[in-house]
C-alpha cells in the first residue's frame, strides 16, 4: 500500500502527531485525551519512539542510497548465515528464559490476594499465546522442512 519511504514518513508523522497531542493533553487543552491520567504520557512516549524509528529509518535509507558499497555490506551483514543462526539461537535462549521468568511472575501474582482477576487472566492469555505460537511455528516448520 505504501512505498518503503512512505511507510517511514507515515511512522514519523504518526509519532510526531502523538507527541504533539500528548503534550496538549498534558497541558489540559484536550480533555478528551484525559480519560486516563497515564494516557498523555503514553502518547508522548509512544510518539517519541515512533518518531525516532521513522526518522532513523529515513536517514539510514538516504545514507544507503548514496553509498552503494555500504548498502551492499549492509545487505551482506543482514543476510549473513552466521548472524542469522546466532540471532535464532539468541531468540531461542530468550524464549527459554521468558517461559520460566514469566511463569514465576504469574505464579507470584496469582497468590496476591487483591490481584485483579481480569489482569491475571490477560497475562495468562499472553503466556498461552506465546507458547501456542512456538508450537504452531514448530509444527509449520516440521511440515515445510
Amino acid at each position: 500500500m505504501f512505498s518503503k519511504k512512505g511507510s517511514h514518513v507515515l511512522i514519523l508523522g504518526v509519532g510526531l502527531l502523538l507527541v504533539l497531542l500528548g503534550i496538549l493533553a498534558l497541558k489540559g487543552s484536550l480533555p478528551v485525551f484525559t480519560v486516563s491520567p497515564v494516557l498523555p504520557y503514553l502518547m508522548v512516549g509512544l510518539g517519541a519512539g515512533l518518531f525516532g524509528t521513522g526518522f532513523g529509518s529515513l536517514v539510514r535509507r538516504e545514507i544507503l542510497q548514496h553509498d552503494p558499497a555500504l548498502a551492499r555490506r549492509e545487505r551482506i551483514e543482514a543476510g549473513d548465515e552466521r548472524n542469522q543462526s546466532l540471532l535464532a539461537l539468541a531468540k531461542a535462549k530468550a524464549y527459554d528464559v521468558f517461559i520460566y521468568a514469566f511463569g514465576a511472575i504469574l505464579l507470584a501474582l496469582a497468590i496476591v490476594p487483591e490481584m485483579n482477576m481480569a489482569v491475571l487472566l490477560a497475562l495468562v492469555l499472553v503466556y498461552v499465546m506465546v507458547v501456542g505460537m512456538m508450537l504452531f511455528t514448530f509444527a509449520r516448520l516440521q511440515r515445510k522442512s
Binding site: 551482506i76 551483514e77 543476510g79 549473513d80 548465515e81 552466521r82 548472524n83 543462526s85
Partner: peptide, 20 residues
C-alpha cells in the same frame, strides 16, 4: 557475500557452514 566475522569463525573452527 558473508561477513568477515563469519570467515574468522570458520577458520577457527568455531562455526560450521551451511551446505550452500
Amino acid at each position: 557475500e558473508v561477513s568477515r566475522q563469519t570467515i574468522g569463525s570458520l577458520e577457527n573452527g568455531r562455526y560450521n557452514p551451511s551446505i550452500t
